[in-house]
């Protein structure tokens, strides 16, 4: 059977600020947005940022409005930079904990905590783990109200390797491997 004809438009969104690129000028990341667009969609870049296009775009604004817009853009850029710095600091202090837990004698599960700090979607990562290691893997709630991924089996080292390879945003130093030996009166 023939596929139904799709008529909906596919709009390109900026890989940096997520808006349609013609609106990048209103975010605080214009320079980065421009670099991204020039690299990924050079034709669209020309249409939006060529000198002629810019000339046409500002022709209708008064001098005062132009100055105000420039000042506004500067303020936004400073704010975005500060936010980025704050985010970088936060990431530097975030830790992913991979814990080997003994469930029964010689039976282990591996819990992975802290991935969300790096912007990863736990459900998706859990699925990836399941596929990669051909084992059960799911997201469960922790007693403290957060969420963790629990993988069946002792796959701590494999998980660390997989994370480092696939998610470059997590620095090696920010991953810690721990072992949770089963003992009586185990305090969580």
């Amino acid at each position: 059977m023939a596929e139904p004809v799709h008529v909906g438009r596919h709009v390109i969104y900026c890989g940096v600020c997520t808006l349609p690129p013609e609106y990048c000028e209103y975010g605080g990341t214009v320079n980065k947005c421009q670099q991204w667009l020039e690299k990924n969609h050079p034709d669209l870049y020309q249409r939006i940022w060529s000198p002629e296009a810019l000339e046409a775009a500002t022709a209708s604004l008064s001098l005062e409005a132009k100055e105000r817009a420039a000042k506004d853009a500067k303020k936004k850029a400073a704010k975005a930079e500060a936010a980025e710095q704050k985010n970088a600091d936060r990431l530097a202090n975030s830790v992913v904990t991979i814990k080997r837990i003994e469930r029964n004698k010689r039976k282990y599960v591996t819990s992975v905590l802290g991935l969300e700090a790096f912007g990863l979607e736990l459900k998706k990562v859990a699925k990836d783990f399941g596929k990669k290691f051909a084992t059960g893997s799911s997201v469960t709630k922790t007693p403290s109200g957060g969420e963790e991924i629990v993988v069946q089996g002792d796959v701590s080292d494999e998980i660390e390797e997989f994370l480092l390879e696939k998610y470059k945003e997590i620095p090696e130093d920010n991953i810690e491997l721990v072992e949770d030996k089963k003992k009586k009166g185990n305090a969580a």
Partner: peptide
């Protein structure tokens, strides 16, 4: 509007 919380919400 573009860039607001609804725009940025992850719906996957």
């Amino acid at each position: 509007f573009l860039g607001d919380g609804l725009w940025r919400l992850n719906v996957d």
